[in-house]
Design a protein around this nucleic acid. Structure first.
Lengths: 229, 229
DNA sequence: CGGACTCCTGAACACATGGACAACAAGTGA
DNA sequence: TCACTTGTTGTCCATGTGTTCAGGAGTCCG
């Protein structure tokens, strides 16, 4: 009962919620701090993993006392979950609106480019997701089993249609999605390795352009497609 | 001085050492326990990350008391390092002996197949490596900067030679290596995701065969090569 | 048998961590 | 001004952690 009844309010009630935003007015202080904390959490979790991350570190990154962080997210697990809510929301949009009547070469090229762009803009999100899956997806298991499985099913149907119509080579659509996922996310997840091997201090925009060009080039040709203009 | 002078002996002195095996006879008890512990460590580190892993958990997996584990590896960091010594030794052999006079299609196909096979046989090693890199490679930084960079340089020279000789399409050799690394390791690192999406309980041999077929198919064609007989 | 190793282990310790909580400050609307 | 909600923070605690250490057991060989 002594527990603060408002903590996590903004977590369960989505940001855009307010379908009837009467009960708890989020307030911009809440909004701003929530943002700061989530960003700090991304860094910390991506760097040390779920168990390795400490609330103290997150607080320091966010420039707040630990107690204040725990005021916004009543515990570590909820913080972790809130992060993935944000991340998955962002990701779900990519390649979701593809249709059988689209041009396969254009659609796949756009998919690849968007994915590489995501690796550039949200590398922490990508790493976070990777670590979670590598560790057996204890938190995202459910998401994989439902949303993601369904998403893949929908996309593969479109690709299969293209194949049936003779518009691209006969390749396993599911494997193709895995190939694009892995090769594009690689630039975010294995950034350090890539930089070290290429003896660079940091990425430049042109590196991503080059990577996207290479991938569309090889993968499209691998699918028997011509690169779109 | 009270510190056990033998601890970690087997760590610094490689297994095959014994160039003059007089001073410390390793003994097979040492050998066997060291093995048990390293295997347990692989599981625990892969599941929880470096910071998340606990010596207690490793000990339980190995069926030994914590103190005994610390007798063999005087601290957590040394254990972690010893693991990677093993792992990197195994990996370094793959694709290392490729030569310009080899057939590019055959050589690349063999590279892909071997890598997929590594994902099948040593999934934990792959995940361990992935987590280490994702977290910024605090322990392997040096290895990346020296050994791995050199390795890539050597291999790309061969690929470039093939291109110059007009034996395959003009693709960036470095990117090609990244593509093969990422797409093959994906089957180990993202195992859970793949199983969930495909609604399977566990991998079967044929899944790897299928994956290797798909990858050689698409990547070779993407490089303008015919699949070898 | 006896000594010199190799191997084993329970107990202890200093320290970090997640989380609870109570008191306090700031904001807000009437 | 006042009542009430929202935000802030220092302190405290139980638990778990890596690592040390001192002593004991097993094993091997002369």
């Amino acid at each position: 009962m002594t527990k603060n009844p408002v903590a996590d309010a903004a977590v369960s009630a989505r940001v855009e919620d307010s379908g009837n935003g009467r009960r708890y007015r989020p307030g911009r202080i809440r909004e701003r701090n929530r943002e700061k904390i989530l960003q700090a959490a991304e860094e910390e979790f991506a760097l040390n993993g779920y168990k390795g991350a400490t609330i103290q570190n997150i607080a320091e990154r966010a420039g707040l006392p630990k107690s204040n962080v725990l005021y916004y997210f009543s515990n570590k697990q909820r913080m972790y979950a809130a992060m993935f809510d944000d991340i998955l929301g962002r990701w779900n949009k990519v390649f979701s609106d593809v249709r059988p009547e689209h041009d396969p070469a254009e659609a796949l090229a756009s998919f690849i480019r968007t994915k590489v762009e995501m690796s550039r803009r949200y590398p922490l999100a990508s790493r976070l997701f990777a670590m979670e899956i590598i560790q057996g997806a204890p938190f995202l298991m459910d998401h994989l089993r439902t949303n993601m499985r369904e998403w893949v099913r929908g996309r593969t149907e479109v690709i299969q249609q293209w194949i049936d119509d003779g518009r691209m080579a006969e390749v396993d659509p599911v494997q193709l999605i895995f190939l694009i996922w892995s090769s594009t996310q690689h630039y975010a997840d294995f950034q350090v390795q890539i930089l070290m091997v290429e003896n660079k201090a940091e990425y430049e925009q042109r590196d991503f352009d080059h990577a996207a060009d290479f991938l569309t080039d090889v993968i499209l040709r691998g699918c028997g497609l011509e690169k779109p203009t």
